[in-house]
Structures are given as C-alpha cells and as structure tokens.
Amino acid sequence: MPEMIAPTARLHRAWLEAHDEWGPGGHEDGFGLQPSDDVGSADGFVAWVARLADEGDPGKAAAAGGAPCVYRWVVEGDQVLGGIALRHGASAFVEWAGHIGYGIRPSARGRGLATWALGRILGEARELGMDRVLLVCAVDNVASARTIERVGGVLEGVCDTALGPARRYWITVPGLG
C-alpha cells in the first residue's frame, strides 16, 4: 500500500535507485532536484533533504528568495515510487511550472499512483487555504494530462514555454472553491 511521506535521508539508497531508473534529465518534477544538488554522497543527500524541508517553511523560503514548497515522496515499503511538490505562494516559477509538479518512476507507472498522490496533495493545498491550483504539463504528455483531468483539472489553454508547448490546467481545491 503506497503512502506519502516527507523526504527523508533514511531512503537515500532507495531514492538513488528511483533516480537511476529515470536516467539523466530534468524530468523528475516533484523532487525539487537542482543541478547543484549532490545527491550521490550521504552528506550531500542529507543537505538536499534539509533544503527541501526548509523550502516548506514560508519564512525560510522567503529568506532564500523563493516561494514555499511542500515536498512529498510516494513510497511503498522502502521503495521510492515518485515525488510530488506543492508550491504555494506567488512566483514567476509557479506561473511557469504550476503549483503542483509530480513524477512517478517508470516501473511504477500505470498503477494510478499519480492520480492518488495528486488527490492527496490537494488535501494539503486545502489545509494551506488554497482555493485553486495551477498544473502545467507538456502538450505531448498525454498520461499527465489524463491524470490532471481525472482529479478535476480544467484546461485553460496551451501556451509556448522555453521547453515547448504546454497545457495549463486549473483545479478547484475540494472544500474551498
């Protein structure tokens, strides 16, 4: 049975296995991974997990020049299956990438985990007082578009981005909108 947890250094090896499965590239949205993060070493991984925790604190995020972001990992036992990020607050990054980003490792796809995680993170958005959230996905990412639509996403339109054309969806947060 999957669960969503806060990032933890305890799952270093499991996270690296998921990361290796994805292969190189910036397609692990939901993990907050930046090119400068040293996730291969134990100390670097601990520092990265600490940074993710700090980004969830509005005061610390503002001091670092960013909007707050809550990160959760989708895990089953000691296996990391994916990640999801809830960016709350206004920023140019949120306008470009959306309030929520997520990714499920290739071997765990097709099980409904992204839909499940998205539904769960909407509960956290509600707790933060968010009444609607923006999600953005590449035009050719049909699986992500279906996931967003499954949880109530309404297509605003398609726009051009530096990474190519993208769909913009809005979801009314259940219980607030």
Rank of each mutant, 00 (worst) to 15 (best):
residue 95 E to L: 05
residue 90 A to G: 02
residue 47 A to C: 07
residue 51 R to E: 01
residue 58 P to K: 05
residue 76 E to S: 12
residue 96 W to I: 08
residue 114 A to T: 08
residue 83 G to W: 15
residue 62 A to Q: 13
residue 167 R to V: 12
residue 87 R to K: 06
residue 26 G to Y: 05
residue 129 G to A: 13
residue 114 A to R: 12
residue 101 G to D: 07
residue 108 A to N: 14
residue 165 P to C: 00
residue 76 E to K: 11
residue 72 R to T: 02
residue 160 D to N: 06
residue 66 G to Q: 09
residue 134 L to M: 08
residue 56 G to N: 01
residue 33 L to S: 01
residue 66 G to P: 06
residue 81 L to P: 04
residue 115 T to H: 14
residue 136 V to I: 06
residue 92 A to R: 09
residue 71 Y to W: 15
residue 92 A to K: 04
residue 9 A to S: 03
residue 145 A to G: 01
residue 141 N to A: 03
residue 105 R to P: 00
residue 93 F to A: 08
residue 52 L to M: 08
residue 114 A to C: 13
residue 9 A to P: 07
residue 141 N to M: 08
residue 10 R to L: 05
residue 42 A to I: 09
residue 106 P to F: 10
residue 14 A to V: 14
residue 86 L to V: 01
residue 10 R to K: 15
residue 82 G to A: 13
residue 90 A to D: 05
residue 100 I to M: 06
residue 55 E to C: 02
residue 17 E to P: 06
residue 17 E to A: 10
residue 13 R to C: 01
residue 143 A to G: 04
residue 103 G to A: 15
residue 143 A to T: 04
residue 173 V to P: 05
residue 144 S to V: 02
residue 17 E to G: 08
residue 58 P to M: 00
residue 17 E to H: 13
residue 85 A to P: 04
residue 118 L to N: 12
residue 109 R to S: 12
residue 84 I to T: 10
residue 115 T to C: 09
residue 40 G to Q: 08
residue 96 W to A: 11
residue 153 G to V: 08
residue 56 G to S: 04
residue 157 G to N: 10
residue 97 A to E: 14
residue 56 G to K: 02
residue 24 P to Q: 14
residue 125 A to P: 05
residue 172 T to M: 06
residue 147 T to H: 03
residue 115 T to R: 15
residue 77 G to N: 13
residue 81 L to H: 04
residue 121 I to V: 08
residue 74 V to W: 04
residue 164 G to F: 15
residue 95 E to C: 00
residue 111 R to I: 03
residue 25 G to E: 12
residue 98 G to I: 00
residue 81 L to N: 01
residue 116 W to F: 11
residue 68 P to Q: 04
residue 150 R to L: 00
residue 104 I to T: 05
residue 173 V to W: 00
residue 84 I to H: 12
residue 176 L to V: 14
residue 39 V to F: 14
residue 46 V to I: 08
residue 76 E to V: 02
residue 34 Q to D: 11
residue 154 V to S: 06
residue 114 A to S: 13
residue 138 A to Y: 04
residue 153 G to E: 12
residue 130 M to V: 03
residue 69 C to W: 05
residue 133 V to G: 07
residue 42 A to M: 09
residue 9 A to W: 02
residue 36 S to R: 14
residue 23 G to M: 07
residue 79 Q to Y: 12
residue 35 P to Q: 10
residue 142 V to A: 13
residue 18 A to F: 15
residue 148 I to K: 07
residue 159 C to L: 02
residue 16 L to K: 13
residue 45 F to N: 15
residue 71 Y to M: 12
residue 59 G to P: 05
residue 170 W to C: 00
residue 162 A to N: 14
residue 67 A to P: 08
residue 104 I to D: 07
residue 168 R to C: 00
residue 109 R to K: 13
residue 69 C to E: 07
residue 32 G to R: 06
residue 154 V to R: 10
residue 145 A to N: 00
residue 166 A to Y: 00
residue 169 Y to T: 02
residue 93 F to Y: 14
residue 144 S to N: 06
residue 56 G to R: 02
residue 12 H to F: 03
residue 101 G to W: 07
residue 117 A to I: 06
residue 153 G to P: 10
residue 75 V to W: 07
residue 23 G to N: 10
residue 120 R to T: 14
residue 152 G to P: 07
residue 113 L to E: 09
residue 130 M to E: 01
